[in-house]
Design a protein around this nucleic acid. Structure first.
Lengths: 252, 252
DNA sequence: CGCGATTTTGAGAGGTCTCAAGCGTAGTGG
DNA sequence: CCACTACGCTTGAGACCTCTCAAAATCGCG
């Protein structure tokens, strides 16, 4: 690493040398527009560990706690989980949903511990790479370095976006944006058909994600339903009027 | 870099080799408790460029815009700025305040562009390192690598904390937390005396940071004043009752 | 001293919350 | 097979927090 940096003292490698320096190549391609900014690409592109190395969690189970010492990187292989922040009086805020194939957080790799709860929403299977093991993987597959940087950026983008939503948008907009964001992320995974997808969230989860009350979430969903924008029942969400829902969500 | 990773294929270097590998050493010390979690440490520990290499911005000036191509790293040397997210209809959310000595965002280094506005609050002097230049700096001073990682983590911590505040706390708590957070950050810089400090924010700024209306901010400030928790006038904030303000802010 | 920007105050509306009850559905055990 | 229970969804009524609109008061700067 030190050698790498030292070799830059006179500037970046010129383009012709790019292939000789994977870090430069990775940075370079990121800088030149490869960074997808739309739907949060937290998806880890590496191969997942075999199922026998995975651990399981039941719905509602707390998988990780703040402060818990973790050495390495955790990936949710199957099921939905949520990153949760809890206030001392019990109020909860869901910081993000972790979908199948998502890295839980790049924080664990560098900080060694998390600062949020990871809670299973559905049954969850997840895997943990130890740091050394994970770093070896990065070495073997330089594209993964790129992915790690991209994911790190996406995490922060998402956090900023969430803050703006919670601070400045009203209930209807927040729900519309949440639904569309989830749809986009699931679409990448091929889990959306005919603009509808499985949504294993209780209204309580939606409330905790949008900074609202379950009761109010229920009323807003009712309104969206009444306006013909969505159909939501039996754990399946169907976007019935995509154009109008996007307009409500202030997208495009 | 590739060599560094390759040398890890059998795990991290043992402790005895630590000094031979600055990246490992940096990671290691971060993992073992050196990560300060309290007041957001966005402060860049490196030497600032000489004043003649700095640029200036007047109050209210937009320094950077989303999408603007930036090559490198920007540091605010003097004055207050704000990272701002704008909705299409003009609503604004301040994502963070950038204080003297703070890195604007580690994002610029890896993404090449920003996704927020940087707006000057007071008169601002700032400096921009080009990426190559900045990387050379990192190479020359390995502690800065550590700082960069720490700042990257702190940025994300802050963003998550903000989301939880905006989603789940009421106006009084949000103001109390904002004031105490700013005090803590300014204290590091030696800018707090007798629990009071210069606060160059308009109530509009406070409103944009807390997701409230200027009018409501004014009333809440009035309430805090009336309760003897703060004194705020003429651009100076004095915390008159720290214990109670901290209790209100849900700290400790 | 005068003008624009900012703070303060008032009145009323509206969005969201709280508390509470009723309802549907799925699983459980007799 | 049928209570019975648990859980989540739905609905109602009223309170509270925050917003909107508007105007007055104050501050700061030229």
């Amino acid at each position: 690493m030190i050698d790498h940096f030292a070799s830059h003292e006179n500037g970046l490698h010129p383009a012709s040398e790019k292939s000789a320096c994977p870090v430069c190549a990775a940075l370079d391609s990121l800088v030149h527009g490869e960074l997808s900014s739309g739907s949060s690409p937290l998806l880890w592109p590496g191969r997942l560990p075999p199922q026998r190395d995975q651990q399981a969690a039941r719905p509602r189970q707390t998988i990780f706690q703040p402060g818990e010492t973790l050495d390495g990187m955790q990936i949710v292989c199957d099921g939905w989980a949520a990153r949760v922040s809890r206030l001392t009086d019990g109020r909860r805020q869901i910081l993000s949903f972790v979908l199948p194939g998502d890295l839980v957080s790049t924080r664990a790799l560098f900080a060694g511990s998390l600062n949020f709860y990871l809670e299973a929403i559905t049954a969850v299977r997840y895997a943990s790479y130890r740091r050394a093991e994970f770093i070896a993987k990065l070495a073997a597959e330089p594209n993964l370095i790129k992915a790690l940087i991209r994911i790190n950026l996406a995490e922060k983008d998402e956090a900023d976006r969430l803050a703006a939503d919670l601070g400045r948008r009203r209930a209807e907009e927040r729900l519309a944006r949440l639904f569309l964001q989830l749809m986009a992320r699931l679409e990448i995974r091929g889990l959306v058909r005919d603009q509808s997808f499985a949504l294993p969230l209780r209204q309580q989860h939606i409330a905790d994600a949008t900074g609202l009350t379950p009761v109010h979430v229920n009323r807003v969903i009712g309104a969206l339903r009444g306006d013909g924008l969505i159909e939501l029942a039996h754990g399946v969400l169907k976007v019935a009027n995509l154009a109008q829902l996007r307009r409500l969500a202030d997208l495009n």
